[in-house]
Design a protein around this nucleic acid. Structure first.
Length: 315
RNA sequence: CGCGGGGUGGAGUAGUCCGGUAGCUCACCAGGCCCAUAACCUGGAGGUCGCAAGUUCAAAUCUUGCCCCCGCAA
């Protein structure tokens, strides 16, 4: 076992790719964590013009002057790590399975930040699923990386209460902040062996499957509360949608206004200033929407330009 | 050359095909009504119609080039 005096003495290799992982890295670096190298997925062509853009994590690392490695297949290509002097690996949403051989390269272990209260919601989309399932709370877990996905020992957790004001985007921010806190408060103890961790109880394991393209098409038949769960769980990216006049009509934000049935299922109810949608078991007020080809806008603006929507039915 | 939609007062849109007074719903300002109001009525200010060039007596509208935004696909 080691005996680091300060967290800053530990030389860390950070692995991650998307926005949320970049936020975590940013918090960690601002807090003084000693990150000696960053591994991120390959840059991919983005946007309509297919321009190659750096991954969010790469962008942050670069701005801090930290070397970035982007192996095509980490499984076959992690030899570059032998040229780096480091102590431990920390990952958050890297995007590829980390091979066992690489796990063994870290003298003081490999650690992962997972966006749920393990053992619940192992897998790809824990934050979205927690919201979609209408959980009352979720959180972040600092854990040991092992061969099996999200199955290692748990060292520390932070709980985050969920309510109807939290969507995927706002939860991501909370998770990023909590993740960084977990690292600052616990990683030293974990690596020094003071914090032994706790095995996950297999009988409590649940999985958070990736969001499928089909799920992004909101199901108007769902009962109103679960429908709102989907809207929040998918917002702001990728955004759940209905079809209106054959084109996608995304709904980013909505709230329940009554439990009545005032029109046909999926009908936009007549209202001067609000975009009211009849759902199964109640009426919801759409607050932020986007019609295919248009910009995201508040419902009031949309209504100003498209009053004809009243009486139409969303599918 | 991946497919498609779009850029019009502060916001959202109509008008573009078929050239000729820039309309609508809001926001804003003033006045009115009202116990009162985010409601209602009246009046008002605010626009180089993305940029540039071309055609024309005349261009938001037609032609060409460019910039930017958005949905999809990757």
């Amino acid at each position: 076992m080691s005996s680091f005096v300060s967290l800053k003495d530990i030389r860390i290799v950070y692995m991650g790719t998307p926005e949320i992982s970049a936020s975590v890295l940013s918090f960690l670096l601002k807090g003084g964590l000693n990150v000696v190298a960053v591994i991120s997925n390959e840059d991919k062509p983005k946007g309509r013009k297919g321009i190659l853009e750096p991954t969010p994590v790469k962008a942050v690392a670069t701005s801090f002057g930290i070397p970035v490695f982007q192996p095509h297949r980490i499984k076959e290509d992690y030899g570059f790590l032998s040229s780096i002097d480091f102590d431990a690996i920390l990952t958050m949403a890297y995007g590829q399975i980390v091979p066992e051989g690489l796990l063994r390269l870290a003298k003081y272990g490999c650690y992962n930040l997972h966006g749920s209260l393990l053992p619940k919601y192992r897998g790809a989309a824990p934050m979205q699923r927690s919201i979609i399932d209408l959980e009352s709370k979720t959180g972040v877990t600092l854990m040991e990386m092992v061969k099996a996905m999200d199955a290692g020992k748990m060292y520390a957790k932070k709980e985050i209460p969920l309510d109807e004001s939290i969507d995927y985007s706002s939860l991501s921010e909370l998770v990023a902040k909590a993740s960084a806190e977990l690292v600052f408060e616990n990683l030293l103890d974990v690596i020094n062996g003071t914090n032994k961790g706790e095995e996950q109880r297999e009988e409590e394991v649940t999985f958070a499957a990736k969001i499928t393209p089909e799920e992004e098409h909101l199901n108007i038949h769902l009962d109103v509360d679960h429908l709102l769960g989907y809207i929040r769980g998918l917002s702001l990216t990728p955004g759940g949608y209905f079809y209106l006049e054959g084109k996608k009509f995304k709904v980013f934000k909505a709230k329940k206004t009554s439990a009545e049935t005032l029109g046909g299922l999926g009908e936009i109810l007549p209202s001067k200033k609000e975009l009211l949608l009849q759902c199964n078991g109640g009426v919801i007020c759409l607050e932020t929407v986007q019609w295919e080809g248009k910009k995201m806008m508040d419902a009031r603006s949309f209504l100003n330009g498209a009053p004809w929507i009243k009486g139409k039915t969303l599918q």
